[in-house]
Design a protein around this nucleic acid. Structure first.
Lengths: 129, 129
DNA sequence: ACCTCATTTAGGAATAAGCGAAAATGATAA
DNA sequence: TTATCATTTTCGCTTATTCCTAAATGAGGT
């Protein structure tokens, strides 16, 4: 059994959920309140990476910059669709663009990102055995 | 102008997308083919973190294990909804459960995860200034 | 002027997320 | 056994999100 006092282990019938270490929960709620403001942004960061197309873009740009149309070919997408994904990545600081005449070239904003990605990939492969 | 030869810079009318460094694209496609199998899993990993509720769970468990009902209170969700999110996190190896009588306690599977999360949070705060 | 590469906007179709209700599970206590 | 409790799971539903196409626009080049 959990070693909580009767004081702590209250029944709250009001919300219909039994069990409930009142003090502990409040403490944690208070602690989370600090980070809570940044949580949506952090989630947004991960949400962007939770997509194979965008991951492919980042990996494709690992060695060299590419123009939009070449990226489109790598992905097998239309220019418009590709441009949309590139914008999402750019807006969150993953990518930098470089204008060269009519062309636009994209590259990784920092190599650290790639290192992190590769690290995660390796972790994944290790976990799978 | 990009320094690509006329040979490389072909027009592929078949797919209606002009520009196109054929060799470069094929090289990259080949390179991506290796990672491509693991990409959905990697994306799934990030997708799971791209959600404030689940981030909250991970942060809530940073110091101590908690029973499902307490987590539910922290989140302000029903037990069922909470249990569902916990399962998602457990299935991907973020969380461990411990049965104690009728109760079930959840904890982080590894402290490294938390370190990574905190690091990302700090990076985010730094970026915002 | 016209063509080209890229971006943006608007729209919609398909998909997925996320929750609660309720039934099912599994453990404990009477 | 029966009852009760904490949790899990299934189901159905309502949102929300994703991701594309098409069309309009911008910006360069010829």
């Amino acid at each position: 059994m959990a070693n909580v006092s009767a004081m702590q282990r209250e029944r709250i019938d009001a919300c219909k959920i039994p069990c409930f270490d009142h003090d502990k929960v409040n403490t944690i709620k208070a602690r989370l309140a600090e980070d809570e403001n940044h949580l949506p942004e952090l989630a947004g960061l991960y949400k962007l990476l939770g997509n194979t197309t965008r991951l492919k873009i980042l990996l494709a740009l690992s060695t060299d910059e590419l123009c939009v149309c070449d990226i489109a070919h790598v992905l097998g997408l239309s220019i418009a669709a590709t441009s949309h994904q590139l914008k999402l990545l750019r807006d969150q600081g993953w990518l930098k663009k470089r204008d060269d005449g009519k062309m636009v070239y994209y590259r990784l904003h920092s190599a650290d990102l790639l290192k992190a990605l590769k690290g995660d990939l390796n972790m994944l492969e290790a976990r799978l055995g």
